[in-house]
Design a protein around this nucleic acid. Sequence first.
RNA 1: GCGAGAGUGGCGGAACGGCAGACGCGCUGGACUUAGAAUCCAGUGGGGAGACCCGUGAGGGUUCAAAUCCCUCCUCUCGCACCA
Length: 844
Amino acid sequence: MNQLYDFKIIEKKWQKEWLENRIFEVDEDEGKDKFYCLEMFPYPSGKIHMGHVRNYAIGDVIARYKRMKGYKVLHPMGWDAFGLPAENAAIKHGVHPAKWTYDNIEYMKKQLIRLGLSYDWRREVTTCSPDYYRWNQWIFLKLYEKGLAYRKASFVNWCPSCATVLANEQVIDGLCWRCESQVEQKELEQWFLKITAYAEELLRSCDKLNGWPEKVLTMQRNWIGKSEGVEVDFPIVGMNESLRIFTTRPDTIFGVTFMCISAEHPLSEKLCEDKESLRRIRQLQREPDIKEGIFTGKYAINPLNEERIPIWIANFVLMEYGTGAIMSVPAHDQRDFEFALKYKIPLKVVIKPQDKELVEPLQEAYEGDGVMVNSGEFSGLSSTEGKRAVADFIEKKGIGRKTVNYRLRDWGISRQRYWGTPIPIIYCDKCGIVPVPEKDLPVLLPENVNLTGKGESPLKYVDEFYNTKCPTCQSPARRETDTMDTFVDSSWYFIRYCSLNKEEAFHREKIKYWMPVDQYIGGIEHAVLHLLYARFFTKVLRDLNIVSFDEPFERLLTQGMVCMESYKCPDHEWLFPKEVEEGKCIYCGKAVHIGRVEKMSKSKKNIIDPDEMIESYGTDTVRVFTLFAAPPEKDLEWSSQGVEGAHRFLKRVYALVYKNHKWLRDTALISPHEPIQEVQTSSILNLIHRTIKRVTLDIEKEYQFNTAIARLMEFVNEIYSYEPKTETERKAFKFAIRNFLILLSPFAPHIAEELWRAIGEEGYILNEPWPSYDEELAREHTVELVVQINGKVRSKIMIPQGMTDEQIKNIALDDEKIKSWLDGKEIIKVITVKGKLINIVVKE
RNA sequence: GCGAGAGUGGCGGAACGGCAGACGCGCUGGACUUAGAAUCCAGUGGGGAGACCCGUGAGGGUUCAAAUCCCUCCUCUCGCACCA
């Protein structure tokens, strides 16, 4: 055994051996319980970043722990390999996207192996390979057959920088999720997947996702945005037409004083003669904070009270939601109130709050519940009763119906870019839209293309791709040239991992054994993107009888961000941490401005390169630090001194074993039946059982790896003080070290493996069962009794474990310090807690 | 504006309603060194000579006992935000 902890040699050695001996490979075993541990696969952008390291370190601890607990653990990894950066790199540097991508994958795979992650690489999935994307196409065809994939012209989100369309989920605050450019509206014909057909189920089964963070579920529920209400037809005066509106507040229908329609509403042209103003309103569409409208000069009739209601066109009414037209109740809706105020439209109060009087003129709309007033026969009903009564009345009269609206829109998947899955559709002049027959899959992405990034699919100009024959009538036809959104790829990859066979993507028995994923780990940025799409696909695949479960991810852990302070030099802009020495810029010596701790990002250069860290300290240190510095779901602040601390800990572990390895090697383990005489033996056994217990509970309880590692540090600190002398003490010591190494191994697998062999153990530590603890031995022999008087600590006394309340009371009252505190005072009450605390309540 | 989460030493962070500050960083002292680095040992919330007192964003409350439960407020972070 080498005296020094040479992590480079150790880590390389074991990584090689683990791979060669294929110890991470796993197959089904019906006799054993399974555990599917999955981390979100990365986009092969070039290099792994610290966020990945954290994500995968967390997953690896869980996978290794569960495996040692006796589960068959599926722990796969792959590449989300289609996407824009590859194409942009190609345009910029002239490398083919495929080469760029596969080169990156090769490099990043090496990095993952260097991290000691326990993946079964036989299952590796690369979404840009035809083996994979042919199944995207196959699923698309199935969706098409079921009417769940359709083509439609509409206004879509267009990112000018990415030169492609984006789905609604991919627009964050009006900006592109990927590049943060301002998103525009463009009218295009596009392919959509009917996720709205599953809106209700996606919403309802949120309630069953007990293992998900409430925050993510809230975001999904908000995104789906269900609201129940009624649609009502308001006849238009002098026209043979009605204006259909949607409202969730039928109880306020007697308070309508105007109507508003969207400028994009089909009737807007017909109703509004002032085309100039109409165009102006269209320009102001979705402009926040501005309310603009024009009166059309036309009126509608409120079908409940026959009142004449002016019809307006307003910029704040959305065509995509409801019917694109609303009834406006300014007294009870703040938006309508502001609009009415601006255009001096009268208000009519029809809801009276229970607990206060509304003082007119109103200062703001009253949107709460109350009692209906000025509402004809409905007056006197509560809002809740009124909603139902008015809705029933409307249905009975045949002027409308109860409806449910969702904010969720269908998923637009067409992308005007090259590096994605071709949509398997052919356009024929005679037959129209013709799906590519299943037997002709995959529709291969041609390799020779001229990439421009100008907003049109380059496939259009690849003749041998574009020109084809109609599968139905054999006449010349054209292929669809848009490719699929890459979120399609990641919507089912977790199912693909289950089947090893290259030809068969959906091996039903294997899927049945492994799925659903027991623990999914990734960033919260996918709360409504990937996670919603994956849930949707799972339900679709279930309805296609490919899978038999409703939800893909049993438990979800959203890990926090990796953060760091940033540095900015007055002359040299943002600086990398290594460009700063003692608070000064290494180029000009000027003091740098230290920015707040925030997510590591290339633009602010507040990044730490995992490769450099591994080079200097080793993988085990990096893993231990990232797991120790914060609980997994919280943000982690990178600290170079913290890394040193983690490294110091591992060096201490190494030195501890080195110091004793010669005799440890030849010593047997203490048997559970061996009589314990020496105090030290009993202390060592108590220490290790205590440690096993606490580490196990910390991992089981919400994956508290930070405290688990703290326990391991405590173990090391304490065992340093023991000098085993007798044979029994040595056997106990060996037992302790051996089990400690198992406990350490999920966090720092390489050093654990190395030391495992150094103390004479055989086989791979990953194949060892997780140690169990003896409750009796884990208990402390003596307890520090805390004695309080009126809730304040007044004394601490060491007592044997297991005293009765009465004994404790006597000991406490007999204590000299306590006696002096109690002198001359009357004891009212004595409370003892679990044999370790006593509170004596006295009259002051 | 609405919703969720958070606020604890110099710092990262611990604490089933029961000893606030585990563990780590940093700092202080000591040992080993010619010296340093590394390592090891000890100490380290604030005040006070001391007995003790004060301390978990602020203020109230419940309780024998509150960082933890309840109410009001402040600050920060993250979602949502013309969805009728």
